[in-house]
Design a protein around this nucleic acid. Structure first.
Length: 570
RNA sequence: UGGGGCGUAGCCAAGCGGUGAAGGCACCGGGUUUUGAUCCCGGCAUUCGGAGGUUCGAAUCCUCCCGCCCCAGCCA
């Protein structure tokens, strides 16, 4: 009936808990921590996507379950790629998903002074040095996967000189690329991240928060662990590709006197079939015009999903369903589609809408008569009430609901057949009018049985098919956008030879301009979701839809075993 | 033949040495139905990447092998 409580602890839902929650539970029981403190640390260089939603649900979910904080921290250490506008969009998306960071909104740039002081300490400890090698030299000195690196000529420079040089880096005395600060660890480490990683670089770029105060910016590996420690994070959750960075995360925190030492735990990122997930590729789709923008309903960005008609609950349920592990995995797109169907099936009011209209004239129905029929808003939920549907002599039905020469199992309209109009009357085929030139069917003539008002017959005769319809005179004409998967293949970006854009689905968007929907939809509010019976779930476009001129986006089709059957026969 | 990870059904995923290998998606049947939807019922791994070994007993422990992923940004 009702969905399980969103915020109930996983255990209470009788669901097995994931390995991260197991670790946290153990730390709580052992007394290592009295409560967990997690964080979601986006870089403000793009929009959030469904993969981020997985991380958000994890980090904020743990906080909800334990009544503990989850920080929202922007990892804004690279001003050349980051923008203020992304900061706002990201906050909006996290809030929309239903999460609240309370007072815990932070920026890595808040810590730039502390980070600088820590770097000075590292130098004083003899654990960092200013290196004057060029970027290319640093690369060649790093060695390879199988050969150790070589020491930088600057490696044994004295502490005083390092201190002076680092101060002068900060003061803008050097050009970009001429000097970096490096941690002094081990040039022979089998883990390349430990071969004296760069921790500060010169970048004479305006920062969206610190302005022109800094011309040196700290690198991720150095910044992230210290930010976690400064904030008192207990469990720092990130994706698998950072596993090789954990020794460095721990080295920085072990070397410096920090308030605490958070535990980094890695999990597998989300991959979905029939789409791409990397911000770089999403950006490319936007910049090259394959989609309209970051919030194009075909994009699996949070903003795209929102515009498509996905609900926060559906995304949270999806994230809960897919599980969490350390195995690289591909979640089937049908799992996401199933999540939104599940949610909308419960909540979306039912309406009648004809996407590809075919005119039907009921020859024996009075010329000027209009009557009102009653339709349920949700057949499984009578408490959602009903509405009136105008019925008249001229109607529209779906082109797909008529076949001139139908197979036996086609339970719809065709020569000699009778069908039920949903909430209306039984109608029987009489004749059809075709365009003499093209052979295209222009209109169908039928007769109706006045005894079947509402959809049942006193003589108890059965009709196998029920089809949807809209009264022509009262219909609201509108635009409908049919969205389909953006890519044709399950793994568009794993082909080594072919670019992922070669697999774009040319039919991912179908624009229908002459759709006929029931009059109640004229006033649909932007963002409202409906089930167009027998067609799918649709949402009034949040951007382009207007009262009196609605525009609908197809969120997802209904399951369609008929189409599946027909598809199987070719 | 550098290091770090991972391998349970088509796709995810429980399982943490003890009689029958959860659950979801997908798929296949059947029932209800004024949405070919929803809902309901049933089917779907004699087997856990492979081979050995330990044990009365292993998907769970050990050994070897095979496969896949990550790392040589002054990105995060």
């Amino acid at each position: 009936m009702t969905q399980p409580e969103q915020s109930a602890p996983a255990e209470a839902q009788n669901k097995p808990i994931d390995f991260i929650r197991q670790i946290i539970d153990e730390d709580l029981h052992s007394g290592k921590h009295s409560r967990p403190v997690t964080r979601f640390p986006p870089e403000p260089n793009g929009f959030l996507h469904i993969g981020h939603a997985k991380s958000i649900c994890l980090n904020f979910g743990i906080a909800e379950e334990n009544n503990s904080p989850c920080h929202l921290r922007f990892d804004d250490t690279n001003p050349s790629k980051e923008e203020e506008s992304y900061v706002a969009a990201i906050q909006n998306d996290v809030r929309w998903l239903g999460f609240d960071w309370g007072k815990n909104l932070f920026f890595a740039s808040d810590y730039f002074d502390q980070l600088y002081d820590f770097a000075v300490q590292l130098i004083q400890l003899g654990k960092a040095y200013v290196c004057e090698l060029s970027a290319e030299e640093i690369r060649s000195y790093r060695g390879t996967l199988t050969e150790p690196g070589q020491d930088s000529p600057s490696r044994e420079r004295g502490i005083a000189e390092n201190l002076d040089l680092f101060r002068r880096m900060k003061d803008g005395e050097f050009e970009e690329g001429t000097h970096v600060l490096r941690a002094k660890i081990d040039m022979a480490s089998p883990n390349l991240n430990m071969r004296d990683p760069v921790i500060y670089r010169i970048m004479k770029t305006h920062h969206h928060r610190t302005g022109d105060k800094w011309c040196i910016y700290p690198m991720y590996d150095y910044t992230h662990c210290l930010s976690d420690a400064i904030e008192g994070i207990t469990h720092s959750l990130c994706t698998l590709e950072f596993e090789n960075h954990r020794p460095l995360y721990d080295w920085v925190l072990d070397t410096l006197a920090t308030p605490c030492h958070p535990q980094q735990i890695e999990f597998a990122r989300l991959n979905l079939t029939y789409t791409v997930m990397s911000k770089r590729k999403l950006l490319q789709l936007v910049q090259e015009g394959h989609v309209s923008d970051w919030d194009d309903p075909r994009m699996l960005t949070v903003s795209g999903l929102r515009r498509r008609g996905y609900t926060p609950a559906s995304i949270r349920n999806f994230c809960a369903e897919i599980g969490l592990g350390r195995k690289e995995s591909w979640i089937d797109m049908t799992v996401l589609e199933n999540a939104i169907r599940d949610d909308l099936n419960e909540s979306a009011p039912r309406v009648l809408g004809v996407l590809k209209p075919l005119k039907v004239i009921i020859d024996n129905y009075p010329e000027d008569q209009v009557e009102e029929l009653t339709a349920q808003n949700h057949p499984q939920k009578p408490e959602l009430g009903s509405r009136a549907l105008p019925f008249s002599r001229e109607l529209y039905i779906e082109q797909d609901d008529f076949m001139e020469d139908p197979p036996k199992k086609f339970f719809r309209l065709g020569p000699g057949r009778e069908v039920r109009l949903r909430y209306g009357y039984y109608i029987k085929f009489a004749s059809m009018v075709k365009d003499e030139m093209t052979g295209e069917i222009q209109e169908i003539h039928c007769t109706y049985d006045p005894e079947t008002r509402g959809g049942s017959s006193p003589d108890g005769r059965k009709v196998k098919g029920t089809i949807h319809w809209v009264s022509a005179a009262q219909a609201q004409t509108c635009q409908v956008r049919l969205y389909d998967r953006l890519f044709l293949t399950e793994h568009p970006d794993t082909d080594k030879e072919r670019d992922f854009k070669e697999f774009l689905n040319p039919d991912s968007l179908t624009l229908l301009e002459n759709c006929k929907v029931e009059p109640s939809l004229a006033t649909a509010k932007p963002g409202d979701s409906f089930q167009f019976e027998r067609n799918g779930y649709f949402c009034a476009d949040p951007v382009d839809s207007r009262p009196g001129a609605p525009v609908f986006n197809r969120t997802v089709t209904l399951r369609d075993s008929w189409a599946k059957m027909m598809g199987g026969k070719g």
